[in-house]
Nucleic acid binder design. Structure first.
Lengths: 115, 115
DNA sequence: TCTGCTTGCTACAAATAATGTAGCATTGGG
DNA sequence: CCCAATGCTACATTATTTGTAGCAAGCAGA
């Protein structure tokens, strides 16, 4: 799969509108999960495999390359880490943690109602 | 692919931590894109195909079912639309629009520097 | 009622992407 | 020199996505 560069054709947009490039990126297996896990701090390749619980090294490497190319993560001593841009992205996304908990609760209630 | 129900095993978490269920969902092709497009208002099946520019009806239907089951969208007269929860999700995600524009600019600058 | 259209969706084969396992090259002790 | 750990590639298997065709149902007009 080619890297979803804004300005180039991406999934969902012939003209590569930035938001569509981003949604294309995010819509790839593990890509946001990786960013999410890097929130805890820099990590080596094997550490990332561990944080993700289960991800093939093949795909991990593919995603790392994409995210690097798109300037969301970088590699340094200590391992992979979020760039400044990556951090600003994670800040937007952070509330999803809380949201998901509430969502899980309401789904639970809904299921309970049916019993 | 089974629906990523919080509490069940999902990609990235054996115990189905809500955030992992959510990231699993979001990491599926088109799923966030669909939500994004519904932001503009309710849409019929064919209208959604149109908004997405290019999505196979097979997948569209699959995603719609998932999102319905997870209570993020619902169907009514006028077509598919965001539920209250779907709306609160979109509100979190809305800033991505702005973020992506800035991101695209900075990527552009980076590329320019190399020339 | 007989078209002729639109809509929502399914079928299914072909193309692409993700997984899992094995393992190799490199680095850093001891 | 030997051992262990790390980063990563190879590659076959399996799963997901796409693309095209087309059908059943509903509706409007003649």
């Amino acid at each position: 799969m080619s890297i979803p560069l804004p300005g180039k054709q991406v999934r969902g947009s012939k003209t590569g509108k930035p938001i569509m490039a981003l949604l294309d990126l995010i819509g790839r297996t593990w890509s946001l999960g990786l960013v999410w896990h890097l929130r805890e701090g820099p990590a080596t390749f094997r550490e990332l495999q561990h944080r993700c619980e289960k991800i093939s090294p093949t795909l991990l490497n593919t995603r790392l390359k994409e995210l690097k190319a798109l300037n969301i993560i970088s590699i340094a001593e200590g391992g992979y880490q979020l760039t400044v841009q990556g951090q600003s992205l994670i800040e937007i996304i952070l509330p999803l943690g809380q949201w998901s908990i509430q969502w899980a609760n309401e789904l639970q209630e809904k299921t309970d109602e049916l019993n």
